[in-house]
Nucleic acid binder design. Structure first.
Lengths: 337, 337
DNA sequence: CAAAGCTGTGCACACGTGTGTATCGCTGAA
DNA sequence: TTCAGCGATACACACGTGTGCACAGCTTTG
């Protein structure tokens, strides 16, 4: 009884019986390039329509590529990540792939568990957006013929394709933008999540400042979030020597920081304080903020990922760096003459 | 050559050969409840570890449930939707399911194509967050033993489980909140996307106002977005008789509307204008807005979805309505004495 | 000591495909 | 008329599992 109701999905054999042809005729009807006469094709299609037949991609995946791509991601709620997931799913779909999302934590163990899942489902490729998987597990994926793509992850990871943005350029550029606006005391607002990208942006900015002999203070008040930016403002402006130009390594941090500075300390932006962010999330363009920031070319990056996956295990590792584009808005004063 | 490199995933047979046992021993080792001696289990696990074996869930899915759940969603970038996807993926994963995301458009044809995909991959269940699929295709899914869950979709759809929030309650409550704050001329800001939920919120609000003899104007300036809210403000406050209390059927609309009113018309909120939103997205709590709104109990809803899917094709259709919770912040004046 | 019970393992089948190979029927040319 | 050629179709196999069934080996009981 309970067994009977479980066996319900309609298979090619049932379609064949109904259409009065062999099962392979059905199979060939649904694979293009195979030769079927117009008459049988018509019969098959009609029977399939009647029965509600859909080719079983799981079974198909046993023989050839599964066309499954796994996205390993934490914190999908973050605007920048949501946007990236959106771009990837959309473009992968257009390329005939289906997307599995594995919502992982950022710790290595969780990411490794996610990688295991990816192998369980014989995914053609795995795209890691968050956290850093163990090198050995990446090796396993590669050995099993699975592509691995790491986005904005740690550079010193050996295996897999690697793509990210030029964080150093952004850090340097942010410094010059603030200097050109006449800022004398600089600050960096970053998060306690020690991601390679964030560290790099901070490091280059600080180095550029020190090289020019400009004082810099670094503040990390919590995870990469609006609340941490808010808290960073409290810490920074509670002191005596507050900065007048701040580079926030993330837009979310920047927006919280702006609100904290304005709401709790009545600081005018960009009059008394210039702020630069990174990511160019939708909220950065909202009227209350109009944040000057850097945009990641997410669409191009997604396109590149799809291209990488399309070709079967192309020339080993590849490292591709995209240029973030400065987006001028109103949180930084025009350059002083 | 090109064939040789394709056949790379390690199978149970290879593990069996390496461990010197039968393939079924390997299979039993990885299915709990099966009886295997400690000795062979140890040998199998060791060989599996060595070879990097992972059970093929696609093959497993041929015999029993696939443990795949498909999420059909458009506009994953929208904060409320991203949050829901986050909750669902997380909870489904905890329940031993894997999530496939199908990024669809909202038109019926796209959603139907997505439903087709869902059948292709023999998903145990499909959760529709956006758009309204054709009733006949839902019927097909149901006939194939697949669960269908519609979240905040059109009510008059026959098949599948249905869950959503009490939009009527929110519309009514919004009216009373604004009236209690002393608002005399009301307005509704909605979108041109004629979703059932949005229509219901608007309808009830307008009816309550008309019943009480309070003037109401309805504005729809575009899709459900920040930009539409901004544009709605331009239209509303360009007229002579501007409203002093507005219910925006979505937080995104509300935030854009607030910014438009303040930035372009120097209107004080909540001094001259009270605004109420719906969804309670993270941005609504930001310092620049502090929007009074209604929160959807997304966590509970996700939990309910998981519970529905867990039991195999429980008692047919079910309709469950969740109560949105009013969230008091600063965009509405305290009640006048 | 014999019989019965219990545990662990191997064989074989089913799940739903795609495709290589053989067969069958038909057309056209010699 | 015969035979090559060709297009369409049926058969069989492989893909990687989970599991029912039979059987071997060991333990327990009378």
């Amino acid at each position: 009884m309970s067994e009977q109701e479980r066996r319900l999905f309609v298979s090619a054999r049932m379609v064949a019986e109904r259409a009065g042809v062999s099962r392979s005729a059905v199979s060939r009807t649904f694979t293009d390039g195979a030769s079927v006469s117009d008459e049988t094709r018509k019969k098959v299609l009609e029977a399939a329509q009647k029965l509600g037949y859909h080719v079983n991609h799981l079974a198909r995946g046993l023989r050839e590529r599964s066309n499954i791509v796994c996205l390993v991601v934490a914190d999908i709620t973050t605007p920048i990540r949501a946007k990236l997931v959106d771009e990837l799913t959309r473009k992968l779909q257009a390329a005939g792939k289906i997307t599995m999302v594995i919502n992982s934590e950022t710790d290595t163990e969780s990411v490794s568990a996610a990688l295991g899942m990816t192998l369980n489902y014989r995914a053609d490729a795995t795209v890691v957006l968050s956290g850093t998987p163990s090198a050995s597990l990446i090796e396993t994926c590669l050995a099993n013929g699975q592509q691995v793509v790491l986005i904005n992850r740690d550079d010193r990871l050996s295996g897999g394709h690697n793509l990210g943005v030029d964080n150093a350029m952004a850090g340097r550029e942010a410094f010059f933008l603030l200097r050109r606006a006449g800022c004398e005391r600089l600050g960096v607002v970053t998060s306690t999540a020690r991601t390679a990208s964030l560290i790099e942006r901070e490091r280059v900015f600080v180095e550029a400042a020190e090289e020019a002999g400009v004082p810099v203070t670094v503040t990390a008040a919590g995870p990469t979030s609006y609340a941490s930016g808010l808290e960073a403002a409290r810490r920074l402006f509670g002191r005596s020597q507050a900065p007048d130009g701040v580079f926030c390594v993330t837009d979310l941090l920047a927006l919280g920081f702006m609100d904290g500075a304005r709401d709790e300390f009545r600081i005018d932006i960009p009059g008394d304080l210039c702020v630069i962010g990174f990511d160019d999330i939708a909220e950065a363009d909202w009227r209350s903020y109009r944040l000057t920031t850097f945009s990641q070319p997410l669409a191009e990056m997604a396109e590149h990922v799809v291209a990488l996956i399309a070709q079967p295990a192309m020339a080993g590792q590849e490292k591709r760096v995209f240029e973030p584009m400065p987006v001028w808005r109103n949180s930084v004063r025009p350059a002083a003459r």
